[in-house]
Design a protein around this nucleic acid. Structure first.
Length: 740
DNA sequence: GCCGCTCTCTTTTTT
DNA sequence: AGAGAGCGGC
């Protein structure tokens, strides 16, 4: 192995503390990835067989990169490392052990869309109104419960409102449906292994023995299930190394819990701690800005990041009029940077809070002719036409997969309508058999038209044919001929619209992806392909090597670095983002998110904000983000746009009303300020004043509290938390609210 | 059963 | 503003 002399002393110590629990607190840009790779390489060079090391990373991309770096350090023996995300590693383990849990190896992994479909069907079956109760909210609550290892049976006792009561019912049925479909959702991939190991001590022991060294990266973003899993696997040998930075925890909405770091210290009191505080990435100015900002968070571990890098240029703030202007100003700044600093396009990144913001930025880039690449947005594998083809493949692998089966039974449309489907499902339910099996008993299903019966037989024959072909053709031949026979490509081509052509291209792209998968794997199977598809993240496929500016969300930027970084949309309401449920912990997470953004920058940071922006089809006027005031005046310079148009003074009637409510200056945020939620587009009502906090009464929903207001005039909307019906979004003009 | 229209909801972030 | 779902007419 190459010498580790090129690491600094604290990095070296962290690398060499091989045995026992280790906690590495690694600040942004402190060479964390380097330490991890060297640490693993060091273990291998000390004689630990690579297959006894399990390293859990946050993205597949990080895993791939680390693995190849380790291979360059210690050679090919490192290929047998176990490395990947929690989800992919445990999916792999679950495939092996599926029969212990009553699933088969070919189980399907349901994404959030599939889960939502199951939730909806379950609600319908239970007679719970989809109008009254938001299926998405119920799905989210089920997911949260699962992340916290709350079982359906325990959920009832924790019910706090009527939505919880309904959720409890749905949750129990939802789990049964998944089991019937031989399917696991994302959360199950973490929970089921725990269930497996708790039930089966011998099996746990085997895996404990197998993975003698555990490493967990981005530990601040693990959830309870992931932590319990870590403890289970590593609790005996205690060779657990966790690496993280509490200041970069940005996934609490997904159940991540920073308290895991504190719990680790409690559960492993003998753990050795290392702190990496020297930053190698950023200029002093950028680091100071980040540090000044993060000090506004009360809830944090103390850390002292420092750097030997030069002072660097101040952070530039771009005042923009609207999102178009923002795009233009960013483009101009980009062009200046490229010409003056001799940068490549892939040295530049534009980050934002929400995917929706990319649009205006893309427009500006396109107009200027600057090539760009976008990470994320509408995910490829979530597009309708792609999901349809994938569903066919899923059903062929796992005929029990009801969600996919019902999705494709009439796609392309073959005359099996909703009524027929209902009859088939009803029949299956009555006979306690799967829908797939019911297809073979079509003659016995009541109320089916002859046309529907014939179509079902056709559909069945189609599936059967490709089931038989599966073993005979190569993966890419197989999928191509299946798509051909489905006839969707031909149909799309005939349709001829731009949209249809786009879909046609997408399906071709999917087929190429399958071919590529087949050529890069030694024994490619459909099962493997589907698993990979289910667990890819947008960032996994980003290479960063092409000659283009990169656009992505702040979340996706975690772990990356760029010489020049732009953070767009620095406005109250957008960053920090607020929804109806903002509280101080949300605000602190938003601040950490911005912190992550700042610390991606090596040499130069730009922050932009717009006065006017379209949101939800309405113009909205926001004051600049409080975070701009929190990064320290001494670190910033303002650069005004070349021309200022203020629609506050030149705008028409519709705009004038905003004047009064938005001349209010954002309060300077102080850590001690208890109520930090700023006024959010509040305005007076005709009959009575509705503001945040007003208690109102609704004809059917009863008593509720106004959480937020948005929009203007006729279109003004209120987010109301009802005592019995949860959160609703109402148009005030129609809602007929009375004071409660 | 299919087509086209209107209404609703969304958009926070993602494995 | 745009997409998807739900509804009504053919």
């Amino acid at each position: 192995m190459k010498s580790i002399a090129d690491l600094n002393p604290s990095q070296q110590e962290a690398v060499k503390a091989a045995n026992g629990p280790v906690m590495i607190v690694a600040g942004a840009g402190s060479g964390k990835t380097r330490v991890l790779t060297y640490r693993i390489a060091y273990l291998i060079s000390c004689g630990v067989p690579a297959h006894q090391i399990l390293a859990l990373t946050f993205t597949n991309k990080a895993a791939h990169e680390m693995r190849s770096r380790i291979v360059t350090l210690v050679g090919d023996s490192a290929q047998s490392l176990w490395m990947g995300t929690f989800h992919s590693v445990f999916a792999r383990i679950l495939r092996r052990e599926a029969d212990h849990l009553g699933f088969t190896k070919t189980f399907t992994i349901y994404d959030s869309d599939d889960s939502l479909g199951v939730v909806k069907k379950t609600m319908a079956r239970l007679g719970i109104s989809l109008q009254q109760f938001n299926p998405n909210m119920i799905r989210a609550r089920i997911s949260t419960a699962k992340n916290q290892l709350v079982l359906p049976s325990d959920y009832v006792a924790r019910s706090r409102d009527i939505v919880d009561e309904k959720t409890a019912l749905v949750y129990a049925e939802y789990q049964k449906s998944l089991r019937k479909s031989n399917a696991l959702d994302f959360d199950d991939l973490l929970i089921k292994p725990i269930e497996l190991f708790e039930k089966n001590a011998a099996l746990l022991e085997r895996y404990q023995y197998r993975f003698r060294f555990l490493l967990v990266d981005e530990f601040q973003d693990t959830n309870k299930a992931q932590y319990v899993m870590t403890k289970l696997l590593g609790g005996q040998h205690r060779n657990i190394c966790i690496v993280g930075d509490d200041a970069q925890s940005i996934y609490s909405f997904r159940g991540a819990d920073i308290r895991n770091i504190l719990d680790f210290e409690r559960d492993f009191p003998e753990c050795k701690q290392f702190r990496l505080e020297q930053n190698y990435r950023s200029t002093k100015t950028i680091l100071q800005a980040a540090d000044t900002l993060i000090r506004f968070n009360l809830n944090r571990l103390n850390k002292n990041l420092w750097t030997e890098n030069p002072q660097g240029a101040p952070v530039t703030i771009l005042d923009c009029h609207d999102e178009q202007d923002e795009g233009q100003q960013i483009v101009r700044a980009l062009q200046r940077e490229i010409s003056s600093a001799k940068l490549e396009l892939n040295d530049l990144a534009i980050l934002y809070r929400t995917n929706a913001q990319s649009r205006a930025l893309e427009d500006a880039l396109r107009r200027s002719g600057l090539p760009y690449t976008i990470v994320g947005g509408i995910r490829f594998y979530e597009r309708k036409e792609i999901k349809d083809v994938i569903s066919y493949l899923r059903v062929l692998v796992n005929p029990q997969d009801e969600e996919s089966l019902l999705r494709i039974i009439n796609v392309p449309s073959r005359g099996i309508g909703d009524t027929s489907i209902e009859n088939i499902v009803g029949y299956a339910l009555g006979k306690k058999t799967t829908v797939y099996a019911a297809l073979s008993e079509v003659e016995q299903i009541a109320n089916l038209t002859d046309r529907a019966k014939r179509s079902v037989v056709e559909f069945r024959t189609f599936l059967k044919k490709f089931n038989e072909l599966a073993g005979k053709l190569s993966l890419s031949e197989f999928s191509r001929s299946m798509v051909d026979e489905l006839g969707i490509l031909r149909m799309l081509k005939e349709e001829g619209t731009t949209e249809a052509l786009g879909r046609w291209e997408n399906i071709q792209e999917l087929l190429s992806a399958i071919s590529e998968f087949a050529s890069t794997h030694s024994e490619p199977t459909l099962e493997q392909f589907l698993e990979e598809v289910a667990l890819v993240a947008d960032i996994d496929s980003w290479e960063g090597t092409q000659n283009a500016v990169t656009l992505m969300t702040l979340h996706a930027s975690k772990g990356l670095e760029f010489p020049v970084v732009f953070v767009a949309g620095m406005e109250e309401g957008l960053l920090p983002f607020y929804s109806s449920t903002i509280d101080s912990s949300n605000l602190e997470e938003e601040r950490r998110l911005f912190y992550v953004g700042i610390t991606r920058a090596e040499r130069k940071l730009y922050l932009s904000h717009a006065k006017v922006r379209f949101r939800f089809g309405d113009l909205s006027y926001q004051s600049e983000s409080r975070f701009l005031l929190e990064i320290g005046k001494e670190n910033i310079e303002y650069q005004s746009g070349p021309r200022r148009i203020s629609s506050l003074t030149t705008g028409g009637e519709g705009h004038r009303q905003w004047k009064s409510s938005h001349t209010k200056k954002t309060r300077h945020a102080e850590p001690k300020d208890v109520d930090r939620t700023p006024e959010y587009e509040s305005e007076s009502q005709e009959q009575f004043e509705v503001t945040r906090g007003t208690i109102v009464r609704h004809e059917t929903f009863g008593r509720g509290k106004v959480l937020a207001l948005s929009g203007s005039g006729e279109g003004q909307k209120a987010v109301v938390q009802f005592d019995d019906y949860g959160i609703k979004n109402l148009v005030l003009r129609f809602a007929n609210l009375r004071l409660g």
